[in-house]
Each structure stands twice: as structure tokens, then as C-alpha cells.
Amino acid sequence: MRGDLPQIAGTADISRVARRLRRPSSRRASPWAWFWLALGMLYFFVPLVATLEFSMRAVRGRYTFVAFQHILSDPDFYRNFGFSLMWAVITMVISLLLVVPTAYWVHLRLRRLRPVVEFITLMPFVIPAVVLVFGYIRLYGSRPLVLTGSPVLLVAGYIVLSLPYMYRSVDAGLRAIDVRTLTEAAQSLGAGWPTILRQVIFPNLRVALLSGTFLTLAIVVGEFTFASLLVWPAFAPYMEDLGNKKAYEAAALALISFGLTWASIGIIQWLGRGAPGQTQVTGAH
């Protein structure tokens, strides 16, 4: 039992570890448990602290927040981050509108197709982003359909990339509720499809949808290949560009983006609070 703390891979693993720690046998936390925990924390925090320490050495001989000030006063930071946020929001909206009704219908009427749909959503893990984007450019860079000048390809690529996370979150959420019976109950009470989706399905998927949108946000903001190769302003190419030119500012930016990510998690946790009967935050079921 002891000594096998899994590598931090996701909330599911963490909660499994937490459950294990809650068992009576391991309640008298053995010194080894603390040792592994401390090791894990070090693994997690040392790079952060080191990055912070480095980012504060922009001025020789003393610690300052000059690098942070540079970033926060750089209009390019806001422009690129703003673009990334915009792409993220567009991606989330389209992705939700695409995935929720699809997953709902698959659960309700096309259960046999579930493995097929699941497989399709996993494609981004099989096909690397760089292959996808070159495929896009080849296919849509010449006539009859030229799309390389518009952000359509960028957003389309983001939607594909976020598909596994979005679909899995929604699927897990739908598995947690008895979709079919709830739908039928609502129907027998006189509700039509829009009402059922709005008042029964969406509210009960709140946490799943939040986690799906959060993962999408994280992916889109951190995505480099698409934005760089399709030449659109975004956060990741900006960060890369900065890293080539200004070392301290790049470190500061890494921490800022880290903080923004954590703030997003916080917001999602806060929005998802008190959702009755549902406790999962990620897609893990």
C-alpha cells in the first residue's frame, strides 16, 4: 500500500489517493506516506519557486518585480491574451452546441453508436496537431474552398483538439444521470425538446459542462501549433516569441499564465458549488 503514490495525472487519481488515505489502516499516516507526499510537493513546487526566483532577478543584485511590470504594461500581452480568450470562447460555444446535443442523442437513441462516437472524439490523440494543421492548409489553402485567410480553420482545429475532453466530460455527466427516464418523465409532464434540454439536461450537467469548458479554455490558451502555423495572434506564440527575446519576462509570463489557469479553476469550482448530487469536477466518473 505505501510507497506507491501515483504520479499526479488528474483529479481522479488524486481522489483515489485521498480515498486510500482515508482508510482506517492508513489513518495513522506512516512516515513513508509523508515522505512521498513531501517528495510530490517538492516535484511540483521547486520548478515554480525556481521560476519565480529567476523572474525576479531582472535587475542585477536585487529582487524586483520589474519583469512582471514589463509584461503587464506590454500591450502585446493584452492583445494576444485577448485573442486567445476570444478563440477560446468561440471554441467553447461551438463545441458545447455540437457536443451536448450529440452526446445526449447518442445516450438517448443511439446507444450502439457510443463506441464509434467515442473513437471519433479520440482522433486528436492519434493524429498530431501539426499533421492536422498541414492537412487543413493543403486542403483549404487552394481552390475551390480557400479558408486560410479566415480564423475558421483555427477555431475548427481548436474544436477538434478539445473534442476528447469536451465529449468525455459531457458523456460522464450524462452517465451520472438517468438521461432516458428523466427525458421521458419531462415529456410525460408536457415538456418539448428545447424545454427538456434547457431545464432538465443542462442544469444536471452543470459541473460536467463547466469542466469541459475549462479544459477547452486551458487547451486553447496553451495551444501553439495551430496559431503559429496559421499565423494568428495568440497567447502561446507570444510566449514563445518572448522566450526567445527576454528571458526574465518569459519566466514571469509563465507564472502569470499559471495564475490565470488557477483562477479559472477557482471560478469553475465556485460556479459549480452546491450542484446537488454531483461532485465530480473533471470528466472522471
Binding site: 438517468d178 427516464t181 444536471n204 446537488p276 448530487g277
Partner: peptide, 10 residues
């Protein structure tokens, strides 16, 4: 009325 109750959890 269903076997699984089917009350809306939200």
C-alpha cells in the same frame, strides 16, 4: 411514474 423515480435532481 417510473421504477427509477426519475425525479429531477436539480
Amino acid at each position: 411514474v417510473f421504477q427509477a423515480y426519475a425525479l429531477f435532481p436539480n
